[in-house]
Design a protein around this nucleic acid. Structure first.
Length: 491
RNA sequence: CGGGGUGUGGCGCAGUUGGUAGCGCACCUGGUUUGGGACCAGGGGGCCGCUGGUUCGAGUCCAGUCACCCCGACCA
């Protein structure tokens, strides 16, 4: 029996859920809203981590680790930050369990109440800036360019595998600078790092932009973001980079002495991407047969499947497969030779398609005779029979072509699903029928943005950078506007 | 927190007007197979989410409760 998977066009959430479960990326866990990331899913995360980490190091950053628990009082120091996060935090109130003397059940020991509750970090600005106070005395201590790989907890009401889980893995960069300009430069620099990572490695095109006041990070002066478009026409925020100004420095009294001997507050940035990126990867490329992984992030880039009738054939194929495998590995390509004898070839084909392995090589008796192999690519499902000579070079090229192709496909989809509209009627029509990004004029007020959200559920995803100014009138109010912004329904 | 739905072997499900639990997949054994999710034969595995009630008898009826999923509000 084939593993049935819901169609993408049928019920997108159902399709997405099935896919995550059936491709073996993750599972629901015993804890509400949390998930178990299975080895295959985690290995994608490791690839993302490794690549991003390299990019962070190249831009001068170092890793560090700060505590999971944040004293409640830290949280209350930055007013807008509390407001943004307070509602969704897990709180530790006790530090011991004991046996109930009557029922003998394990209960929370009421005598073990903490004097000050601890918040399980939803993000680490507060505890980090509390620490930076001790690290920073002079302009010579700056900049501090630190990143942390960690888990965080946000007690969201509704969760979705990878896109929004109660606990999630991420990296958070927290930098401290002597000047506003330098901090702003850092904010943009990291936005660009994210954009190039997502486009080059995940093969997902993104729009770089600035968040409106409504969507801004709690405690930031300016939030920059990269926005990607998923195959159901909804937008997904793939990463953010915040210019925090002196907000946290003031809240935690972090000052440095400048070269004129004067005390100044420190300027800050923070930036992060999470395991949500895996969700983006899935929703941007996958089809009804399963995942389509970009070669640069696929845990297995090439799988070799033997087809045989006799033990002799199997041995001969294995010999060839191992040679091919060795040659590919020498080129830095990750290969799996699936020589399991308890699964038939057709089953394996379907399985690796579900898992999104970019290239499959099948070797059978005919190939042994002809000195060929059958090479199938996951993205287009095309198959061709290739001579074994220089196979590793052909495969290497093919992997590059797949990487480019799926990026182009996603880009074409986005181009196709980005609509310029000038009236509110058009706006609503596009949202209902076509979906996707909508470029429209907006009068720049939060009230208008909220009103549009109420009426249509679409929000301003960002005010795109790299976009020309253009005079116009707001689609809702008819007030003056200097620039188009990007609307969409979002995850 | 509102609306909807589901809880029955590992997974997906069926179970009629109440009569003591079944199917597919997976698993185990043996055999035949292997170029797109194989077939045959045999086998193991379940306090039917939990609690209470009605009844001679409850997976089924009633009440309560818990958990999870989906759709909203909230959010990376």
């Amino acid at each position: 029996m084939a593993k049935e998977i819901t169609s993408r066009t049928d019920d997108y959430s159902q399709w997405y859920n099935d896919l995550v479960l059936k491709a073996g990326l993750a599972d629901y866990s015993a804890v509400r809203g949390c998930m178990v990331i299975k080895p295959y899913g985690y290995s994608i995360w490791e690839k993302i981590q490794r690549q991003l980490d390299d990019m962070f190091k190249e831009t001068g950053h170092e890793n560090a680790y700060f505590p999971l628990f944040i004293p409640k009082s830290f949280f209350t120091k930055e007013a807008s930050h509390v407001e943004g996060f307070a509602k969704e935090c897990a709180v530790v109130t006790h530090y011991r369990l004991k046996n109930d003397p009557i029922t003998n059940e394990i209960i929370v020991d009421p005598d073990a109440k903490l004097e000050e509750e601890l918040i399980v970090r939803p993000t680490s600005e507060t505890i980090i800036w509390n620490t930076y106070r001790d690290w920073i005395k002079s302009y010579r201590d700056l900049p501090i360019l630190v990143n942390q790989w960690a888990n965080v907890v946000r007690w969201e009401m509704r969760t979705r595998l990878f896109l929004r889980t109660t606990e999630f893995l991420w990296q958070e960069g927290h930098t401290a600078h002597a000047t506003s300009d330098e901090a702003q430069e850092e904010t943009i620099k990291m936005l660009n790092v994210y954009a190039s990572f997502v486009e080059e490695y995940m093969a997902v095109p993104v729009i770089k932009g600035i968040k409106t006041e409504n969507e801004r990070f709690a405690g930031a002066i300016e939030t920059y973001c990269i926005e990607a478009l998923m195959q159901d026409g909804k937008a997904l925020q793939a990463g953010t980079s915040h210019f925090l100004g002196q907000n946290f420095a003031k809240a935690f009294d972090v000052k440095y002495t400048n070269n004129e001997g004067k005390q100044e507050f420190v300027w800050a940035t923070s930036w992060g991407v999470s395991t949500r990126l895996i969700g983006a990867l899935i929703m941007a490329h996958s089809d009804d047969e399963g995942l389509v992984l970009p070669p640069k992030l696929a845990p297995i880039q090439v799988v070799i499947v033997p087809i045989y009738k006799t033990q002799e054939q199997f041995d001969e194929i294995s010999l060839l497969a191992n040679t091919i495998s060795k040659n590919l590995k020498a080129k830095g390509i990750s290969v799996k030779y699936d020589n399991r004898e308890n699964q038939r070839p057709g089953w394996k084909f379907a399985e690796y398609e579900m898992k999104g392995v970019p290239v499959r090589i099948a070797i059978g008796p005919k190939d042994l005779e002809n000195g060929t192999v059958e090479v199938a690519r996951r993205d287009t499902k095309e198959k061709e029979t290739l001579q074994i000579i220089d196979l590793e070079i052909k495969i290497e090229n093919l992997l590059e072509r797949i990487q480019t192709n799926i990026y182009q496909k996603a880009l074409d989809y986005r181009t196709e699903h980005t609509t310029v509209v000038d009236t509110f009627d058009e706006f609503k029509k596009v949202l209902e029928n076509k979906t996707g990004f909508i470029s429209a004029h907006w009068d720049g007020t939060s009230e208008t943005e909220k009103k549009i959200k109420e009426l249509t559920k679409a929000t301003i995803r960002c005010i795109p950078l790299n976009q020309n100014e253009e005079n116009g009138v707001c689609i809702l109010t008819g007030n003056q506007s200097k620039q188009r912004v990007l609307f969409a329904k979002a995850y």
